[in-house]
Simulated scan of single mutants.
Amino acid sequence: MIAAGRRVEDIATVLSAHGLILRGGFKCGASETPFADLSGAPVKSVLLVGQAGAAPWPHFLRWIDKQSQTIANPLDSWSREVIGAVAEAFGARAVSPSDRPYLPFQQWAMRAEGLKPSPLGILMHPQYGLWHAYRGALLFEDELPIQAGETAPHLCDSCVEKPCLKSCPVDAYSAQGFAYQSCLVHVRGAGGSPCRSGGCLDRNACPYGTEYRYPPEVQAFHMASFARATS
């Protein structure tokens, strides 16, 4: 059997071939039984899988080109396939942010990496800014040598201007939260062309992690998915 420490390193190596990275993890305490793993035993370790910047994009596009039919949620399907294969190879269970009932991925991420939400709700990373994502998690029945992250510097605290709250033409983000319907109507409408082609104006206004900013075609892909939302 592969040593636990080596297993984490090997998982990271396999994920890197798809542009994905480990996004931290944590051990579940003895009293924590929020879900069950393969055998029904309580989960003892969680590793989060995600991305920094648009590194997975070329791998995803190659996968799309090989599909024989249109897929409703292709990025989710690709993520499930890749992370699911890793889980099978390393004795874990794979879960996704889109699983129902929804799992507390944001809480897991805050615990694993010590991050806090930005005014847009996206977790602010001290290196990646707002340009990162979580694509899934690996749940293990045994303990891995991982530690939850310490609280990272929250860049939003020192950002006085808050340009992320001043760039949206319909003020979708405010202290009251996200005005989902207002944003959706705008993105779908005639005035939403800049958002559809280049992504959320508020997100792009953030001054942090700009070297990881998703290219316009990636942002357009995500915005098109949002515009297709039915609720």
Rank of each mutant, 00 (worst) to 15 (best):
V160P: 01
M1I: 10
P34K: 09
P56N: 06
V14D: 04
Y173E: 03
A224C: 11
Y214G: 01
T210C: 11
A137W: 00
G198D: 08
R228K: 15
G40K: 10
W78C: 04
H59R: 14
G114P: 01
V14A: 12
Q176K: 13
K27S: 07
P97L: 08
L165S: 05
Y102L: 14
S79V: 01
R135G: 00
S167C: 11
V14R: 03
K166P: 04
C164T: 01
R213I: 06
R7M: 15
Q147S: 14
A137F: 04
D99T: 11
T151I: 14
R80Q: 11
S158K: 12
L120D: 03
A109N: 04
R111P: 04
E211A: 15
R135I: 00
S158W: 08
W78S: 02
D171T: 08
S118V: 01
G191M: 08
G114N: 03
R111K: 15
I64D: 03
S231M: 12
K27I: 03
V185K: 13
Y212Q: 06
I146F: 08
G149I: 03
E217G: 09
S68R: 15
A85T: 07
A133S: 15
A137P: 02
M110E: 14
L20D: 00
I2A: 13
P194R: 06
T33I: 09
F26L: 07
R196M: 09
